[in-house]
């Protein structure tokens, strides 16, 4: 079947329109921006420093009122993930400042990103920080009281005792059942039972 050329035009137009509607924001309309993160390269454990992010457009002009999120990687109880450290909007100079406290020693990568808005596109930046020190400043709760000699085994012993009693009761139940297999008249008279 031959399709008319005008039909294809309509299909292309509707397709583009639906794509436009589906994505919400036409990506080609966003202006490119850069996000530069500035942080001291060397820090001592426990230092509190300012970390600054600069958001600029393609011409190097500051982008004000852009929301910037600062994050780093972290782990808690062996579950790793991104830890958000702060969120703030850029000022008239396209600048946003966060306070960062170095709590863990070693190499730390600080990351920031600008999600983009109706005018500007997505941008991200990062800065490597080397934290030096000999102790962790994150607090670990003190362990509870430990009574020498009392551990899991005592729980197991108590439970074992209770279940052994149940088992003993089951044995008596088996004996009752075995006794019941004997014909009633024998059981009652032979075993000296009393029929009430």
């Amino acid at each position: 079947m031959r399709v008319r050329r005008g039909t294809w035009r309509w299909v292309a137009l509707l397709g583009t329109l639906s794509l436009f509607l589906a994505t919400g924001t036409p990506v080609w309309a966003a202006e490119p921006v850069t996000l530069e993160l500035q942080a001291p390269e060397q820090l001592a454990l426990g230092d509190k420093v300012s970390v600054t992010a600069m958001l600029k457009d393609a011409n190097g002009s500051p982008v004000p009122a852009g929301t910037v999120i600062l994050w780093t990687s972290g782990s808690f109880l062996s579950v790793g993930g991104a830890v958000q450290l702060g969120e703030a909007a850029t000022d008239a100079q396209g600048r946003v400042t966060f306070t960062y406290e170095a709590r863990n020693e070693g190499a730390v990568t600080l990351n920031a990103y600008f999600r983009g808005d109706s005018r500007y596109g997505f941008a991200q930046g990062s800065a490597a920080v080397d934290v030096q020190g000999s102790a962790q400043l994150t607090r670990h709760p003190i362990e509870g009281v430990r009574v020498p000699g009392i551990g899991v085994w005592i729980l197991a012993a108590i439970l074992g005792g209770v279940w052994s009693t149940y088992l003993a009761v089951m044995v008596f139940l088996t004996l009752i059942a075995r006794e019941g297999r004997v014909p009633a008249h024998e059981a009652l008279h032979g075993a000296g039972g009393r029929r009430g």
Partner: peptide
């Protein structure tokens, strides 16, 4: 479920002990 209960002396004795434990 009555496990062959006949009410013999032995059965009563076993039941009494089992109930005592429990």
């Amino acid at each position: 479920a009555s496990v062959g209960w006949q009410g013999t002396a032995r059965q009563k004795k076993y039941l009494k002990i089992a109930m005592g434990f429990m």
